[in-house]
Design a protein around this nucleic acid. Structure first.
Lengths: 234, 234
DNA sequence: CAAATAGTGTCTATCAGACAGTATTCG
DNA sequence: CGAATACTGTCTGATAGACACTATTTG
């Protein structure tokens, strides 16, 4: 029995790219130009190009770089969503990726597109069924929710969310970020302890003043490995 | 731009099915009957049948049920492995699943196949490069190692490994299982505390005697949900 | 009673949570 | 100096690790 006996499913790649902007968590959405789901908002992604892409991760990276102008500092595979009904064109599978970036590092701020084809969309507005709500294309709502759960889970036991922040950032910014992701308040002391224990960061020597006492700026160490902790936050 | 512009990658499903047998952790391997990798050992899996399978999980389940006679009590998606080079027939992706079962519940013990086409293979022997070692087909070694890491990780913070045990089991059996998976000794007390705290199990009323004092037998409660703990083991 | 296996009591170590205290900067 | 923001000291509470203790069964 060989693959010639089988109709081939469609295979695509989609990514959920998170950032923190204007004190809220957002993901990148694109307006679809083509059928199916023409003019609906959708996750960045598309078909694998077997000539260009060595792997599905290459496809994810290529699509994200196309849209943002930069390669996200964090990208991991999320899950593959497959079914006979998720795409009206037939049996299909989408290999979904989960990525983080600082919006300041992308070109989406400096060149806001006139046609509004790409937007950072507030995660809260996507969760709120009662809002002025347009459903996302395909099963992208489900993929987004899966990604959000993963981000929340990892925020409990790793330093991963720092990849939503720009290259230089303060402990206060990190604290705010974690509280936004988890949707509840977390003791500063707890985060500061973990931040130090991770040994992933170094002081830049610069400080950032926003009102009163200036906060120390930190950056990732060159050789930093992402640290996981043995316990979860509350 | 539509999918007609793209050559379609091959899409398969493969599963890593773990069990505990003869005091060691084993996975199910099948001897390939066809090219490529004819006569090599491989993970159970194959092409998606878009007529039979509603989703990739259906494919995984169908293949495992074919081989073992039963549906595994635990099945989750692991990761999708894709590249232009993992299959000599061309660009391919395999959606890999991770499953657990008690070998006693399968028909592989009662009807050992004469042709030796299906075998429980010791995980240690697969890790040991120096042993009389035949490489697995495709990138199945890599998939297996990914699955083993996941199992070890989940053993640290959840009760998941119980699905390697038969429907009725003792705390001693659970203790032995965890020590085999983690490859190190764990305090009985710690596991017993978690076992109780999980509230997932109930006494059967029966006991099992193997030498001296008889051990209480436990089974999963009907409505039991898999519990995750806030801290990792050692 | 000795040996073997099952299961418990209890102390310590670690780290998250709570929260008050000190430090720095601006007006 | 007071207000605002940044950061630290230190106590409490929860739970994993260590390990000695008790319980049950067989011979």
């Amino acid at each position: 029995m060989t693959q010639e006996n089988f109709k081939s499913p469609l295979l695509t790649v989609d990514s959920v790219l998170f950032t923190i902007k204007d004190n809220s968590l957002k993901i990148l959405l694109l307006k679809r130009k083509n059928s199916p789901f023409q003019n609906s908002w959708a996750l960045p992604g598309g078909f694998i190009d077997v000539d260009k892409d060595g792997s599905a991760e290459d496809t994810a990276c290529r699509k994200l770089t196309d849209k943002t102008g930069v390669t996200p500092p964090y990208l991991e595979q999320l899950n593959t969503f497959s079914s006979k009904s998720r795409d009206p064109r037939g049996w299909s599978a989408s290999i979904a990726y989960f990525a983080l970036i600082a919006h300041e590092e992308t070109n989406l701020d400096v060149t806001p597109r006139n046609d509004e084809s790409a937007q950072w969309v507030d995660v809260e507005s996507l969760m709120d069924e009662t809002a002025n709500y347009q459903p996302l294309a395909f099963d992208h709502q489900q993929i987004f929710q899966f990604a959000l759960e993963r981000l929340k889970q990892k925020a409990l036991y790793s330093m991963l969310p720092v990849f939503c922040l720009p290259k230089e950032f303060t402990l206060g910014e990190y604290h705010t970020l974690i509280e936004i992701i988890l949707g509840k308040s977390i003791q500063k002391k707890t985060l500061y302890r973990r931040f130090e224990a991770s040994n992933m960061f170094e002081e830049t020597g610069e400080t950032l003043a926003t009102g009163a006492r200036a906060a120390m700026l930190y950056r990732l160490k060159e050789d930093a490995e992402l640290v996981n902790f043995e316990r979860n936050l509350g």
